[in-house]
Design a protein around this nucleic acid. Structure first.
Length: 576
RNA sequence: GUGCGUGUAGCUCAGUUGGAUAGAGCGUUGGCCUCCGGAGCCAAAGGUCGCAGGUUCGAAUCCUGCCACGCAUACCA
């Protein structure tokens, strides 16, 4: 589809030059859009920008261009009609030609041909749950968004290094140890390690409010941990291992993988050298007993970045700096992405500010990819929603709906799991990252409308149609022999046009780190198809050539849906 | 107070980066199963695009100022 755009831009620019306008391609490219309704054409060009220099009305320019271009229509089989409507130049493509071009490409596996990432590395820091806390719905966002961005970049040829920056260090461990020593129970821990630790964590925060002295106790314990105290280390190891086992189960369920699980503790021995490096650069200052680096030079209104606490202990900011230095040494990344909540924006300004003050050339390659909060859940208050519970309920719901389907029980289980996970994952990826939301069981479990299951259902239907075609005609038609001129319906032509934009959509999603762009595109494709499907016209009928054309288009659509769903991490059930 | 973010239908959200009559889903109301899977489709109702200015042929989109909400604002992560 890109080459079609390029062709139009080329032709129009040529004509504008003949009209004595200093027009360049990018100007035309910018003006070239789509008409509000498909009956006007496939592309539209508003002629406003040239009105001033030509001192003519946009409408007369459009008319002039339409006349000149129409004369040359015969040379370009892809173009069928060019007409002026008011100030707009509307262009209609030859749908059969376009269908051939687009569908054949989809079916030859060339969905994404450009590989801008060749030879480039992008490191993505995502998921990063805190050890000793349950994997909550809050961690869903970082995990799902980060994993999707990773798959998208990999698809574009990038070398992707996903790192799970586990929250396995810091004062929270001091809190946990203090709580464990006061109220911990071996037996409960053995049976339900995470649940027990979580309980302790919540209790500590409750008691801390009444007794602020506990805060210092927790700090002391963390200091002991950092100093290598034996008892502290042993506890830390136990807590960490128990958590990892649980996280692993959830990641497997979501099909999420990491190249590395390097938590904060991993960088522990690099904290000293990192602080030393900052000190040698001459940017470390003492302030109110703590050591800081000022970053206003790069980020006005941002308070100094705290490197060491007054008691000499490190902070997570320090560890993030140590981590990025380490990652640079290892990967020489072209981009380093941090997929974390928007509430950490200030934190990353400070980290990046320190990198800039260190004059590090890769400082500008680091980016925070923020996402909005989910309201109504709080780890500390104990109102957390467990991700596994959400998956389970979504699965049960699907199971219920499939009760009457003729399937074996194991098959039903497998598909219900795919649907449940898909529902939850897609829900999170269907809105812009930055938007806040409040947790709502009804919304996340919704299965009608523009939802994951809705998308999956369309995809199942396409698979089923393909089977239906095979039943009747024996084998799928070769795309080369399909008579594309038989596809006349506007819904199908719209579908063809949209299929041609898949690559561009993936690019846009990558560029803006916004999987939702892809999600919505897939839903639009599904909607377009469903409209035709329900119109009373059949895909598979007695008319062999017509059925062949339609079913081949369906195959192309299915290929795009499957590709997009895979990038998002939404499973594709075969039946539901 | 300052910084960042968000305000579009009752609710949840789109709006192709400034273009033609602002669109979906949920919910509500009314239709569509003698034919490919109804987790679907069609239709109706529902809008001062937070408010007020400004920029220009043209603004939900860009600029300024307000308002509301959220987050952040150094020894948590």
């Amino acid at each position: 589809m890109n080459e079609i755009r390029a062709l139009i831009v080329e032709l129009v620019t040529e004509q504008l030059v003949q009209l004595k306008v200093k027009a360049d391609r990018s100007e035309v490219e910018k003006a070239l859009g789509r008409p509000p309704t498909p009956d006007l054409g496939d592309y539209a060009l508003g002629c406003f920008v040239w009105a001033k220099t030509l001192r003519r009305s946009p409408a007369s320019i459009a008319a002039d261009l339409a006349g000149r271009l129409s004369e040359r229509l015969g040379e370009y089989p892809l173009l069928r009609e060019i007409a002026a409507v008011g100030p707009y130049l509307n262009i209609r493509l030859d749908s059969a030609q376009v269908a051939r071009l687009v569908v054949e490409r989809c079916l030859s596996g060339g969905l994404i041909e450009r590989q801008p990432g060749q030879g480039k590395t992008v490191v993505i820091d995502f998921s990063s749950p805190n050890v000793a806390k349950p994997f909550g719905i809050g961690h869903l966002r970082s995990t799902v968004i980060g994993a999707a961005i990773g798959r998208i970049y990999r698809e574009l040829g990038y070398q992707v290094v996903g790192i799970n920056h586990l929250g396995d260090w810091g004062t929270q461990f001091g809190k946990l140890m203090a709580a464990w020593l006061s109220w911990g129970d071996e037996e409960t821990f053995r049976e339900q390690p995470i649940a027990h630790l979580y309980e302790l964590y919540v209790r500590f925060h409750r008691e801390e409010e009444a007794d602020p002295g506990l805060t210092q106790v927790a700090r002391d314990w963390f200091k002991r941990l950092e100093d290598g105290d034996r008892q502290a280390r042993d506890l830390w190891r136990r807590f960490r291992e128990a958590s990892l086992a649980e996280f692993e189960r959830i990641y497997r369920r979501m099909g999420v993988r990491f190249e590395h699980v390097w938590g904060e503790a991993f960088y522990e021995d690099q904290i000293g050298p990192t602080v030393e490096r900052i000190r040698k650069a001459g940017i470390l200052e003492e302030s109110e007993g703590a050591m800081v680096v000022r970053v206003e030079e790069y980020y006005p209104d941002t308070s100094p970045c705290l490197i060491l606490r007054a008691d000499g202990a490190s902070l997570y900011t320090t560890r993030d700096i140590a981590a990025v230095l380490d990652r640079w040494e290892r990967f020489h990344f072209d981009r380093m992405l941090y997929v974390t909540g928007a509430d950490q924006a200030d934190h990353f300004r400070k980290v990046f500010g320190v990198l800039k003050r260190l004059q590090l050339p890769f400082a500008d390659r680091c980016e925070h990819v923020p996402f909005g909060r989910i309201h109504g859940i709080s780890t500390r208050k104990g109102t957390l929603v467990f991700l596994e519970d959400v998956f389970d309920r979504a699965r049960e719901l699907s199971l219920e709906l499939m009760r009457d389907r003729e399937m074996t029980d194991p098959e039903r289980e497998v598909e219900a799991e795919r649907i449940g996970v898909g529902a939850v994952v897609f829900f999170d990826l269907s809105k812009e990252r930055i938007k806040d939301s409040s947790f709502n069981w009804e919304a996340i479990l919704q299965i009608t409308g523009r939802t994951g299951p809705g998308l999956q259902y369309t995809q199942v239907r396409l698979k089923s149609l393909q089977a239906r075609y095979l039943e009747r005609f024996g084998e799928l038609p070769a795309p080369e022999v399909v008579r594309w001129d038989l596809l006349r319906e506007p819904e199908l032509m719209g579908l063809v046009r949209d299929l041609g934009e898949y690559e561009q959509v993936v690019f846009r999603a990558a560029q803006s780190y916004e999987p939702a762009i892809l999600s919505r595109y897939l839903l639009d494709l599904a909607d377009g198809f469903n409209t035709f499907y329900s119109s009373g016209q059949r895909i598979v009928s007695e008319d062999a050539p017509l059925s062949a054309a339609r079913v081949t288009l369906c195959r192309a659509l299915l290929a795009v849906l499957l590709s997009g769903m895979r990038l998002l991490g939404v499973p594709a059930p075969d039946r539901m």
